[in-house]
Design a protein around this nucleic acid. Structure first.
Length: 346
DNA sequence: AAGACGGGGAA
DNA sequence: TTCCCAGTCTT
């Protein structure tokens, strides 16, 4: 599967269409790592401001390694897939501990937390020009269409095939430029919806265009379903304090802060709230404000229907380890989900 | 192999 | 609504 026309056309297209992105101004594997992890499953437009924040706050891996997880998560707030942030801290700490600087070889990178095949290839290619092929969503799309490959990209067999083809296409020289080029081409020209094939320099040899299968490729075998969960938040307050909880072992939003909550499918009543408050916390309720609105919050695999009960109590009695009474004006200092953020915005 | 894991932008 | 984004990890 060698194609000089394909690779030469992409390199030429890239020379004329490359975006000026800040992480392309450096060979520092640490900075490239920042950008690559931030951009996992994330559009450039959404990730860019986060990259700028992180690069400014943590110019060196040492700065990152010395930060508290809460600060990392606060900076990451709103970007999603928070395990990326938690894994980055572990990786930064390990790199500093080893004392040899941020690695730039695929072999070393692939062993680090939060760095998989794509990210290890990207960092090795862009920082050290190692001859490895990147395979991301853009690459699947461009290759599947141009070569008319209908293998499922969410199956092991299909992934291996695309990987092999990507490796065979890698040019001997400028493989770093070529890797950038094919991804940029996928993002700007060979887009998921309505690609502009009429101006595409590869269209003359594009199998999917010839077969009219552009809108069927790349092919995925599974379709995701979302389960619906009702999330009843109990926001306990007294005169000056509010009760927050750090999420531990709940799956979603690990490490972020929210409030006491009941997750059941049924609606809950005024009496349920009273009973739960008494049994779980020993609280005596002063006043309950029923939720006026509900929030629909959609994750990749869950649809939350959330409501917030505001509950006044008189004292701040002792609570479990992962719960904290804090001054209500300080809640903005804690990392929270977009759902909680929207509630707090009123 | 399949599911968990966020949030938002585009059509 | 539906798709998918410079994917990775766990089971």
């Amino acid at each position: 599967m060698r194609s000089n026309f394909f690779t030469e056309s992409l390199l030429n297209w890239f020379e004329n269409n490359e975006r000026n992105l800040p992480w392309r101004q450096t060979k520092d594997p640490y900075i490239i790592w920042l950008s690559e992890v931030i951009l996992q499953q994330t559009r450039v437009a959404q990730g860019l401001p986060y990259f700028l924040k992180f690069a400014e706050r943590f110019p060196k891996v040492n700065d990152f390694a010395n930060a508290e997880e809460d600060e990392i998560l606060k900076l990451w707030q709103g970007l999603g897939y928070y395990s990326r942030a938690r894994n980055m801290l572990k990786t930064a700490q390990l790199v500093v501990e080893k004392g040899a600087g941020f690695p730039s070889t695929y072999h070393e990178l692939i062993q680090l937390k939060g760095i998989g095949e794509y990210t290890a290839s990207a960092i090795a290619s862009f920082s050290a020009n190692e001859k490895v092929a990147v395979v991301d969503g853009n690459v699947y799309r461009v290759l599947s269409r141009y070569f008319g490959i209908h293998d499922a990209i969410d199956q092991t067999i299909g992934k291996k095939n695309f990987k092999k083809i990507a490796e065979q296409l890698l040019p001997a020289a400028n493989s770093d430029q070529y890797n950038q080029a094919i991804m940029e081409f996928g993002a700007l020209q060979c887009k998921p919806k309505c690609p502009d094939c009429s101006t595409c320099p590869l269209s003359i040899n594009c199998i999917a265009l010839k077969e009219n299968t552009i809108n069927q490729l790349p092919f995925k075998s599974k379709k995701q379903t979302k389960k619906k969960i009702n999330l009843h938040y109990l926001v306990f307050k007294n005169a000056e304090n509010i009760l927050i909880r750090q999420r531990r072992g709940l799956g979603v939003w690990e490490g972020l802060y929210d409030f006491a909550a009941i997750e059941i499918t049924e609606k809950i009543s005024h009496d349920d709230v009273l009973k739960y408050s008494e049994e779980t916390f020993g609280f005596t309720i002063n006043k309950i404000k029923e939720p006026a609105i509900t929030y629909k919050h959609i994750l990749s695999h869950i649809i939350y229907q959330a409501s917030f009960w505001e509950i006044e109590i008189n004292s701040s009695s002792k609570v479990m380890d992962n719960y904290h009474w804090i001054d209500h004006t300080l809640i903005g200092n804690y990392p929270v989900s977009r759902l909680v953020e929207k509630y707090l915005e009123g």
